[in-house]
């Protein structure tokens, strides 16, 4: 089964990548961008989704600075 894991900086954690993208967009003429956050997408193909949460906690995300969510996509 295919699982999609989304990892992103926790609310309130400095996201310099997001800030850099946010300031780059107006330079290309895109206006009205209020906030940008850059995260990471991890696609897994697993036998079962039982351990996906543990995978997220132990490796895919660093709970000190990141939050994650995941869903089975097929």
């Amino acid at each position: 089964m295919k699982v999609r894991v989304l990892v992103r900086p926790k609310e309130g954690i400095l996201d310099p990548q997001g800030e850099a993208v946010k300031s780059a967009l107006p330079a290309l003429g895109f206006e009205g961008v209020n906030a940008v956050h850059v995260g990471r997408l991890v696609e897994l193909d697993v036998e079962s989704a039982d351990e996906v949460d543990a995978m997220c906690r132990r490796l895919l995300a660093n709970p000190t600075i990141e939050e994650y969510e995941w869903e089975v996509v097929g």
Partner: peptide, 17 residues
Amino acid sequence: LTEAHLLPGALLRNISM
């Protein structure tokens, strides 16, 4: 060592990028 939880906290991207 922070990833291994032997030390607290984490090291983020430099603020300057």
